[in-house]
Design a protein around this nucleic acid. Structure first.
Lengths: 222, 222
DNA sequence: GTCTATAAGTCGATAGAC
DNA sequence: GTCTATCGACTTATAGAC
């Protein structure tokens, strides 16, 4: 219960509908623009145009460009981790878990390429703004996945491999389908990747991962 | 022989020793700075400081920032292709060829991380400045590697896989060791990657690739 | 909360002395 | 060829009317 339920509209925190709507709009637009040009390469004007608001309004909701950048990154990092802990879990089989994980990561690259690219941009620039996320959240996350891989290995369900570098490889392959999309499309001679390209990519990655799994009967044997 | 071996110093093209020295210095410095911040995020001042020259001198050798950016990219693209055609060649075995290729790519990530990152930065930003390279040079390069993979497959030396996406995966994994180095180091709890980390990475990637190779006797069986 | 107009500062590029 | 000093365009951020 709020301490003073008087007739005065609760003003303790600014949570009006227009505010929520606008900040959401701005953050989405900012993700796109920051993804393409990074922090220093982005102009507040571009974000203003992308969100159909006057530049001053952006500054009203986010005091500085850096504040907006931090907020944009923040909303992205949770999504980036996604369902990893759901799929890479010891109560699943490696086949099921790895397939689910790879498909989820490919889905993220397809549906939120800008989020992936913004994270990549930040890492390329030194990762100063995600340092805490990397050494706290992400490191613990990797430790937990590591335990799952080791459990699989000890149960004889998966070949022995360096679990951390294995995860690095999975990240690298799946994120490439967002980050260097333009390179892939150019090589394939297309304006952009299609659903089939993502499917073939998923298939190819699964094939590489399968080297660590024990030989299994064909999935849909007759 | 020059057409006019007179006493006048040949001035047809500007090729003096100081010029060659300075341009080389500037290009090296520019690679580092552009790699971290991209074209729009880089200040000519930073390049000037990184190359220990007054800003005006940079403009003397490269008229505009964009000219310098193009020149920096140009010197990089050849190196990026590297020895690929030497290793991924039909007169090698897949084992030997893939190992050599992966080791060469990892070596590049280790020795020239800035080159890799600058290319990544450019692709993230849309790849406008490497468009011709992508659709001409790189596309032909991929077609040739594709033929090698197919030859290996038809000779029964390698499992059937999509050759282009397979190459995408190899690029992604090896370049990650340059591009997201900062993420890897943070997860591993180190200030930077060591030689052993690159070795473990190479090993892990080889392990994943081996799923496509026929079961072979242990490399150094007794 | 919204938006125009502008202040304050930064950056690419060049003039011009040496 | 080298380098200082500076111009002019652009960009972040804010003041202040509505």
């Amino acid at each position: 219960m709020p301490p003073v339920p008087s007739t005065i509209p609760t003003r303790r925190k600014r949570t009006g509908a227009p505010r929520q709507n606008n900040t959401r709009h701005i953050l989405n637009a900012a993700e796109k623009v920051f993804a393409a040009h990074g922090l220093s390469g982005t102009r507040m004007n571009d974000i203003a145009e992308a969100s159909n608001l006057p530049k001053a309004n952006i500054h009203y909701y986010f005091r500085t460009k850096e504040d907006l950048y931090r907020a944009t990154l923040k909303q992205l990092l949770d999504d980036w981790l996604g369902d990893a802990s759901k799929w890479l879990s010891a109560d699943r089989s490696p086949q099921e878990g790895l397939r689910g994980f790879i498909e989820a990561k490919m889905e993220f690259s397809r549906k939120r390429p800008e989020a992936s690219r913004l994270f990549a941009h930040e890492l390329l620039s030194g990762g100063r703004y995600v340092h805490d996320f990397l050494v706290d959240t992400l490191r613990k996350h990797v430790e937990q996945r590591t335990r799952v891989f080791k459990a699989w290995h000890e149960a004889g369900l998966m070949a022995k491999t360096d679990p951390v570098h294995f995860l690095f490889c999975l990240w690298a392959m799946t994120q490439a389908y967002a980050d260097v999309q333009v390179q892939m499309a150019a090589v394939l001679g297309k304006p952009h990747l299609t659903g089939r390209d993502y499917a073939t990519g998923t298939q190819t990655i699964m094939q590489m991962v399968s080297s660590l799994l024990p030989p299994s009967p064909p999935e849909t044997a007759e």
